[in-house]
């Protein structure tokens, strides 16, 4: 299908982009990679008045280090995330999860920031950002502000981004120490969204699990942390039994939906199984 008509703006800087958003009228959509927005527009689920295309805002692309933090430009494509040496070194969980997003063509266009700002609960990256305690830098007419991941994802397809604001970069604390990571994705066909997925990062110390961070994909309207499991794993022995015990509480506090691929109770079960697998792998079992 053909999208409905819209006005098109193509800024080259963040300031221009903010002006274009401000001037764009009632219904402005920000086009990052467009790999979700354009299909939605083709299906006429969205018919924005103005589309602000960030493709030429080069300052939003790329990955850099700032001390203990990795700064990922919102317009860095999935492909560039996967091949970035800094991410491979300091945030391999992001690369691992990004490799499972859609297909190579989509990964060439789709962007890290776009996927996070879209906040699709079945998308793979929000749970990873949540697990890594990422921070989101939002630019607006009145300057910039930083929001933690736990505050960024507000509801189904809804984030802390206010009208007129733009996600410009994502700050990811480097994992230091003896961390292992794993993204366990469960879907029925290769290019599909996650039915459920689990992002796990586990730090081992003296033969025990010192800290585990677990993000859940598609277990509710927003990505979630498996807090009960994380708590149970803190200080636990690195054994299959201890991890399995802890993983049983992975679905606590979740509210998954029911659809063609899974009803809620099955999603809850999958969260437990996948958490066990992800944590085991991340812990080196």
């Amino acid at each position: 299908m053909i999208p409905a008509p819209f006005a098109y703006e193509r800024p080259t800087t963040v300031d221009e982009a903010l002006q274009a958003i401000a001037a764009g009228g009632e219904d402005v959509k920000i086009l990052a990679g467009g790999q979700s927005l354009i299909p939605v527009m083709r299906l006429r689920l969205a018919a924005p008045e103005t589309v602000v295309d960030l493709t030429r805002v080069t300052e939003l692309r790329g990955v850099r280090e700032e001390g203990d933090v990795l700064v990922i430009g919102a317009m860095t494509t999935h492909h560039d995330v996967i091949t970035d040496p800094l991410i491979a070194q300091h945030a391999p969980l992001i690369a691992e999860a990004t490799e499972t997003v859609a297909d190579r063509q989509v990964r060439h266009r789709g962007t890290f920031g776009g996927a996070l700002a879209h906040a699709d609960p079945a998308g793979d990256l929000p749970a990873v950002a949540l697990a890594l305690d990422a921070e989101f830098v939002l630019a607006g007419p009145n300057g910039r502000r930083t929001v933690g991941a736990s505050d960024f994802f507000v509801d189904y397809l809804t984030t802390a981004l206010e009208e007129g604001e733009l996600l410009v970069e994502i700050r990811v604390p480097k994992l230091t120490g003896s961390w292992g990571v794993r993204y366990e994705k469960f879907n029925r066909v290769a290019q599909a969204w996650s039915i459920v997925a689990v992002a796990a990062a586990v730090r081992r110390e003296n033969g025990h699990i010192a800290e585990a961070r677990i993000g859940l994909t598609n277990m509710g309207p927003t990505p979630l942390r498996a807090r009960a499991t994380e708590a149970a794993l803190a200080g636990a022995a690195v054994t299959a039994e201890a991890i399995a015990d802890a993983a049983r509480s992975a679905a606590e506090g979740t509210s998954p939906s029911s659809d063609l691929n899974a009803q809620a109770d099955y999603r809850e079960h999958l969260a437990q199984v996948l958490t066990r697998r992800a944590v085991s792998a991340a812990a080196g079992l």
Binding site: M1, S36, P39, V40, L43, R44, L45, D120, P121, A122, Y156, L157, A192, W193, S257, S258, D259, L260, N261, A262, Q263
Partner: peptide, 18 residues
């Protein structure tokens, strides 16, 4: 039986037109 709702991909790719 399966639940009959479509997935929430693209924010639920089912509307009047689809």
């Amino acid at each position: 039986a399966r639940a009959t709702a479509g997935t929430n991909a693209y924010g639920g790719a089912q509307t009047e037109s689809t």
